[in-house]
Amino acid sequence: MSVAEWLRDRLTGEGIPDTTPVAERPQWMRDGMRAMEIFGYDDLRVVGSPGYQDILWSIIGRDVATPVSRDVHALLVAEHGNPQDRNAVAVWLGGQRVGRLATDDAGRLRRGLIRLQRQHRRAVALPGHVGGDRDGLGVYLNYDAAAFGVRQRT
């Protein structure tokens, strides 16, 4: 283990870093990884899904009947070095990036996301669903605003 890896593990806990370079699958995201689900009733929409339609259809299956509504658990990953949004939070399903949180949501939730990862030494997963039809799929998540230390938007 390099000094940088040792330091990152000490700062973020058990090999779960709080950030990753943009569009790169985090090294800690692998089969069998453990995540902590934050269940709640507050809605959170994932943006950028049009650019990930092929990935979403590969996860759902191209031969399913439409309209589609499939329950999922998505990982939130705070991105490091995103040139468009320094508070960017990516959304991953099945080990693949499928979008991101809207800029205002990412700005509100990022600090709480990093705190939860450090506190529980696990990745953070949210329940939700992939829904839509042949014209396009979207990812819709649920979370507990209080767990992230924020108030629900009105």
Rank of each mutant, 00 (worst) to 15 (best):
T103V: 12
A23E: 12
R62Q: 06
V130S: 05
D63K: 12
I59A: 08
L44E: 03
Q117P: 01
H80N: 10
G136I: 10
P67K: 05
G112I: 04
G138Q: 13
L76D: 03
N87L: 14
R45V: 09
D133I: 12
D43M: 10
D85M: 04
G149P: 04
T154S: 14
V3W: 15
A74M: 09
L109Q: 01
R121D: 04
D133F: 07
S2H: 06
V47Q: 07
M1L: 11
A102F: 03
G149Q: 01
R122N: 04
D71S: 15
V150N: 00
R110I: 00
D144I: 06
G51T: 02
A123E: 05
A102V: 04
R100I: 06
R100L: 10
R122M: 15
D9G: 11
I114T: 14
H80I: 10
V150W: 03
V46F: 07
A147C: 14
H129P: 04
A146M: 09
D135N: 13
G107F: 04
R86A: 12
A90F: 05
D9C: 09
W6G: 11
V77F: 00
R153G: 00
G81Q: 01
Y143L: 10
G48T: 02
M33P: 01
P67S: 05
L101C: 04
Q117F: 01
I59H: 02
G94Y: 10
L56S: 00
V46E: 05
G99S: 02
H80F: 15
G95I: 05
W92D: 01
H80C: 08
P127L: 13
W57M: 07
D43K: 12
D71Y: 12
L137C: 05
G13A: 09
R121C: 12
Q119M: 13
Q117N: 08
A35G: 15
R100E: 14
G81K: 01
A88P: 03
W92L: 09
A74W: 13
I38L: 13
Q96L: 14
P67C: 10
V98Q: 03
V98P: 02
I114L: 09
V124G: 02
V89R: 04
A88K: 09
L76Q: 02
R86I: 12
A145C: 11
Q119Y: 08
I60G: 01
Q119K: 14
V130N: 02
L44Q: 08
L11W: 08
R8A: 15
R108V: 07
T154I: 11
A125I: 09
R45G: 05
A65G: 11
R111D: 14
D104G: 07
P21S: 06
G112S: 13
T20A: 08
L93C: 04
V68N: 05
W6H: 11
H120N: 14
D105R: 08
Q96R: 08
Q27I: 11
L109Y: 02
A147I: 05
L93V: 08
Q53A: 09
G128A: 12
G48K: 01
I38E: 05
N82I: 06
A4H: 11
G99W: 02
D104S: 10
G95P: 02
D18A: 13
P26A: 02
V3Q: 13
G138S: 13
V47C: 03
S69T: 11
T103S: 07
D31E: 08
G32L: 10
D133M: 06
